[in-house]
Computed example of a mutant assay.
Amino acid sequence: MPKPNREPDMQKVIEIRSFIAALIAVSIAFTYLMLPFFSVILWACIIALLFHPLHAKLLDRYPRHENIAALVTLLACVLIAVTPALFLASSFIKQGTAIYQQLESGQLKPALWIDQIRQAFPVIDELLRTLGFDVAEVKQQLGSLSVEAGKVMASNALLIGQNTLGWLVSLGLMLYLTFFMLRDGARLIPILIRALPLGDERERLLMQKFAEVTRATIKGSLVVAMAQGSLGGLIFWLLDLPGPVLWGVVMTVLSLIPVVGASLIWLPVGLYLLATGNTSDGIILIAFGAIVIGLVDNILRPILVGRDTKLPDYLVLLSTLGGFTMFGMTGFVLGPLIAVLFITFWEIFSREFNVILDGDAMHDDKSADDRDVSSPPL
């Protein structure tokens, strides 16, 4: 018999492999090309996801005006989110610059504040000695750390002011992309599901998790952090403390970190007020921070997030800190998102793999039963 001709099959295999290799190479090149705009694209997707319900309602009412619905939604986004952010950024830059100049001129002396707190609270020295710490060395390190932290914060404010043009360009690109994400997002999802090779059901589940965790993180972390920072800035303003907007923004950023949060600011300032004789202001600030600012997270987070998509507290802390370390400010979204996707992938794998194992075990048990029934007794 003549041997079958396998050259067409081999040619097809070579073509498929070559195409896949080219596809991977082009995808890597495109990813590298888009890498400088990673934050812009990410935040455009997040904003489109958050404002999608408003866009959907407008489309239901005016189904033939997709562009107008997307434009109106984008204007609402600018009024609700972008305009207040620009105002806060401007105030942050001004107050950060003022603090930077005071640190440089020596008007602000963090080491003196530490001495005043130690003198007013001798128990701190006793506690440090009991734990085996050198008080003088701790004072020097805390003073140096305070100065460096203040300089970094203030110099970053100056850097933001100097890079205003680049920041505005990024903002414009983000809003431009957000418009198309709002208008075309519903059509892009089926295309992604069809193109990705993970299985349609798995891809739908992963996209659903992405949407849930993104909404939960923004509402449960950013909104809570903004509430805590606003309350912190308000009490600083009422007590006539310097830089209320600056410290409110700093408390907002720190509130993104679970457990400690804004207390890293209001607690030392409250202790300093007590140490310098401003007893009433110190008591008010510490009480307000512990009762009002501290309870905002416990009250708002369950309402805004719910229990279904909430990660364990320890995983939220670790993923948020890891996200900050790897991705900067966008890490407070990416960190928990990566953690949830990690858990979801392993849940899918465990569920489907266990089903296969269970099926094999049932098949083996059934075969064994069949052998027992069919085998004659010894």
Rank of each mutant, 00 (worst) to 15 (best):
S155E: 10
V224G: 01
G243R: 00
L165D: 15
L205C: 12
L246V: 07
L173D: 04
L238Y: 09
Q162G: 09
D184Q: 11
W237N: 06
F236P: 02
A225F: 00
L234Y: 04
I189P: 12
N156Y: 11
L239V: 00
G220P: 09
G229V: 01
G199S: 06
V245I: 13
P197M: 01
L238M: 12
I193D: 05
S221K: 14
Q162I: 11
E212G: 05
V245P: 00
L198N: 08
E203D: 14
G172C: 00
L165G: 15
P244A: 03
E203S: 15
D200T: 15
K219D: 10
L198A: 08
L173M: 09
R183I: 01
P190L: 01
L206T: 06
S146R: 07
I191A: 15
M207P: 14
I235E: 02
A225G: 06
G161T: 03
S170I: 12
E203Q: 15
A157H: 06
R194H: 13
R215N: 13
L234H: 07
V169A: 05
R183V: 04
Y176V: 11
A216Y: 04
G150D: 01
G166M: 05
A216V: 05
P197I: 02
L165M: 12
V152E: 10
R194C: 09
D184T: 08
A154Y: 09
W167A: 13
Y176E: 09
L158D: 09
V245H: 04
